[in-house]
Design a protein around this nucleic acid. Sequence first.
DNA 1: CTAATAGTGTCTGTCAGACACTATGGC
DNA 2: GCCATAGTGTCTGACAGACACTATTAG
Lengths: 251, 251
Amino acid sequence: MPKDTKALNSTPLSLIARPLVTVDIAIFTVKNEKLQVLLVKRPNNEQEHFTEKWALPGGFLDIDIDKDLNSCALRKLKEKTNVNSPYLEQVGAWGSKDRAPTEWSITHVYFALLNSDKVILQKGGNAAEVAWFPLIDNQVKKQLAFDHNELLDLATQRLHAKVEYTSLPAYLLPDEFTLPDLQKVYEIVLNRPLDKSSFRTRILSTNLIAPIPNKMRPATHRPAQLYRLTNPDTLTYFPRSFKYNEKALKS
Amino acid sequence: MPKDTKALNSTPLSLIARPLVTVDIAIFTVKNEKLQVLLVKRPNNEQEHFTEKWALPGGFLDIDIDKDLNSCALRKLKEKTNVNSPYLEQVGAWGSKDRAPTEWSITHVYFALLNSDKVILQKGGNAAEVAWFPLIDNQVKKQLAFDHNELLDLATQRLHAKVEYTSLPAYLLPDEFTLPDLQKVYEIVLNRPLDKSSFRTRILSTNLIAPIPNKMRPATHRPAQLYRLTNPDTLTYFPRSFKYNEKALKS
DNA sequence: CTAATAGTGTCTGTCAGACACTATGGC
DNA sequence: GCCATAGTGTCTGACAGACACTATTAG
């Protein structure tokens, strides 16, 4: 009899051996004109693995507290940053017999984007220290606990891929920002300069952002129009190829 | 003390309550010129939920057999189809307190693409029946067990999105196929016609496929060149916007 | 006035879609 | 020859990048 039928033949569910289940989050921000990620330092505790190593914030799912996986990620994010509503996206699940030292374990990797001004770093809980680390060549120059270097790579790859065709970098800015501000965060995340004219055309051709009437950012030069997100909860996707073709559809 | 620190203060890992962990797979194929998905019928067993309902193939992770999540998905896929190496991709994890009737549970959703000729449907295990169901308006016209309609939607959305800019549909074909064959599966999955000329240009501008020298498909009309995948294990991505700009980089 | 940055206009090359055309087999 | 489908060529419109230009503030 195949093993996975056991539950369907009334073996009590409680007898099925279960893996450890965790959530880890790559929290990104732009600070000092660099893309940075939040890491926590594991405590000095003889009974723990990877003691005093830096790691992605995260930990065990608590089925008594968390109503779903996203809530679990938000809870952990809030514990470290005191931020309630970042942009949050699941990257995927990684589980195997030997990714953690002792047991079959699965981690659910998320990434979050937030404006660093809104963050109040909090050690609390199981974190001896909490700090931002810049990404250099898309990596953090540090050996992290467990397989967290790989997990961070995966989150970074996802971020990079999506920045090319979405409005993701807008979540790195404060609520009110100018178009040059927005271009700047795109350039920082993409690590390459963009043309001002085409950037503006592209952004303004969607309804991603709306100007705040009569509100400019004052400066010692020409002031810039301030904008805010039209719909902060919706990610905007810029068009891509295999264009939809109305005419061909009719035939 | 925050709850999630318990493991880090030497509470035995075995005492942390763990959710149920499952894997479900949307197995897609093209059959009779339609995109179809494989479903299994749950057995008639008074002690089970959703008895005799159709569902996505899947079930409990078995930490004694499965070395990682992907292996678990492949095992379940092989049990139902006897196929060893389909295209397989994780869509994501969905877990919550109440998505399953009794317990906090997490499922890891995968989708697979395969050529239906390679499949030998097998009931075995916990499946009373196994069958292909066409997707109509991207849905299967049937109420599935648990939250499987939603899971299937998610897999279908992912498939659709990626078909627009990748070589995914190639995995729905046999090893040798013609360019019109390939165009046809794209059209079936996308549910819209494509222009022959631009389709060919697009495909041939990559090294996705290579012609098989002197091998044509005979027909009562002009024969078509047969091709095969250059690298069957690598998904090809077609280019998209925010084009890389060499000149701007230097400045 | 100048400096500095915001914001616009114009040109041009590229490329995808539309669609007409040619090619090649069976009959 | 005809039919059917494979495969190519040509035109055109859209659009993104390059880059020059104008606009608006402080001082």
